[in-house]
Design a protein around this nucleic acid. Structure first.
Length: 195
DNA sequence: GAGAAGATCTCCT
DNA sequence: GGAGATCTTCTCA
């Protein structure tokens, strides 16, 4: 699997723009047991004080401070007592913004992913934000790590590009700002969380 | 320090 | 299709 690691400059754009650019990119998880490579097929963009659905809407807290950090950091948080979600910090340092990874297609390291999740089908492995973090063994210890630098978790650009058709819809699981079409997914992918 | 809500998943009916 | 699980974080007093 050959691909180029994404550099900091790639992430320093507003989150809705970064969200679209992340579709089709690879998220790579390197553990002592092996490597899992996943293709991103569904994302959501979140911003700051202008986005009531964002964790950063009311300003910086101990939890969301990564959303104000350097572009390319991982923001991992725990939700509903059971699940982790992973976001990628987008935009300039000091300006809150992040892209939630909602679904991926695991293309390499399937045996490892199946060990992490008790399911039978490859689709069920990673077609939801809480599912993919479990399949890739991403937890709170990854909060704040630098995807441009970390050996165990990073993003890269596949050398072989496939044409993508992107669909924009309103975000899922939120109660405000639903008029914003900041959820993006790859049309035709069987791995998106909801159609 | 207490109470409530949450960017979800899974099991059970 | 519906509700329970389960616990962190924030808000308010």
């Amino acid at each position: 699997m050959s691909c180029k690691r994404l550099k900091r400059g790639f992430y320093s754009k507003p989150s809705p723009n970064l969200a679209k650019d992340l579709l089709g990119k690879y998220l790579v998880r390197q553990t002592h047991q092996g490597r899992i490579t996943a293709r991103i097929v569904e994302v959501e963009a979140y911003r700051g004080s202008d986005d009531p659905a964002s964790h950063a809407y009311t300003g910086m807290t101990a939890r969301n401070r990564v959303m104000f950090g350097k572009p390319g950091l991982a923001y991992v948080y725990f939700i509903y007592g059971n699940h982790f979600c992973i976001n990628i910090k987008a935009g300039r340092e000091g300006v809150p913004g992040a892209v939630l990874i909602r679904a991926v297609e695991i293309i390499d390291g399937l045996d490892l992913a199946f060990k992490n999740r008790n399911v039978k089908s490859t689709v069920e492995l990673s077609n939801g934000p809480g599912k993919l973090t479990k399949a890739l063994d991403i937890t709170r210890i990854h909060n704040g790590i630098d995807l441009t630098d970390s050996p165990e978790l990073f993003m890269c650009d596949p050398t072989v590009k496939e044409p993508l058709e992107i669909v924009a819809t309103s975000r899922i699981g939120i109660k405000s700002a639903k008029e914003r079409l900041w959820r993006f997914y790859v049309k035709g992918s069987g791995y998106v969380s909801r159609k």
